[in-house]
Design a protein around this nucleic acid. Structure first.
Lengths: 149, 149
DNA sequence: CAGCTACTTGACGTAAAGGTCAACTGGATG
DNA sequence: CATCCAGTTGACCTTTACGTCAAGTAGCTG
């Protein structure tokens, strides 16, 4: 059904759990240029509670985990979520490591809801794709007839 | 690949072509309540050139074609498009009936681009779905173990 | 240490997507 | 005919998601 490998998804989620010692880190400009956003945007996301990088002498230092969160943010934004929605959404990734029963129940329920929502979007997307492909093919057909009658 | 029937896509696209005589029509409040938006929103879309209903004594009258366009707008919005993008997008549906070669070429190219873009979004969506399913299953597993040790 | 660069916070500006409110109008209805 | 009711335009307000600019700072670098 999905083209995404199980391993890929697992390791991405894993990057939200234990921050390893001596990991690779990034400055704000690194992330900004890598993902084609401005530093201002990254700071803005932090001000909204979506990111919380370490600080060294005032400056922001981003690790793998922060980077993964930024990827999530941009992905969700591209799919039409507001930053407020994304904040709730990110919690699901961050807290999947905790073990208390109430927490687990919460995460299971919320991921279930989120999955349904995304499946709905997927149907809409497929519908639109089907229509565009129809138009594309139809016009291509007419174009062939018009050019080589 | 897609769950959307070819016929479904065809007939939806067809509703953008010849407006039939004596078709069913809707008032602004009908559409608003059907799609859970306010009349203000519908007027706003019109002011942006996304809709152009007929007028009867000042009041707006929407036909099947207008209704189909509204569906397209809301679908595209849910997938993260801006109204400006949607305006270009809608042109592809509206003009697929014209036959001049330049027009056909334009539509074929633009639909091609749009299809690629949506396929990209679909990959992002699938990626996110895979991750959420992973979290969902993991937490469900832990929950079972925690409850029935 | 002077100067440069990259970073910081803070204040203010702005475009998009509507919401809100006021004043008006066209029809239906008692 | 008065009176609703739904609809209309226009002006202004609000929220979201940043951009812009000013003033300050930490850390190299000649």
């Amino acid at each position: 059904m999905s083209l995404v490998s199980r391993h890929e998804a697992e390791s991405f989620v894993a990057s939200h759990l234990a921050p390893s010692e001596d990991e690779e880190v990034f400055g704000i400009a690194d992330l900004a240029s890598e993902f084609e956003v401005t530093p201002r945007t990254i700071r803005f996301y932090e001000s909204k509670g979506l990111l919380s990088p370490r600080r060294v002498a005032g400056s922001r230092i981003y690790g793998r985990r922060d980077r993964a969160r930024l990827i999530l943010i941009l992905r969700a934004k591209a799919l039409g979520s507001s930053l407020e929605e994304i904040r709730h959404f990110l919690d699901l990734y961050g807290r999947s490591g905790e073990g208390r029963v109430r927490q687990l129940e919460f995460v299971v329920r919320r991921t279930g809801e989120e999955i349904e929502e995304l499946e709905g979007k997927r149907r809409q997307l497929d519908q639109t794709l089907a229509e565009l492909r129809h138009i594309h093919q139809t016009c291509r057909g007419r174009l062939r007839k018009a050019k080589k009658p």
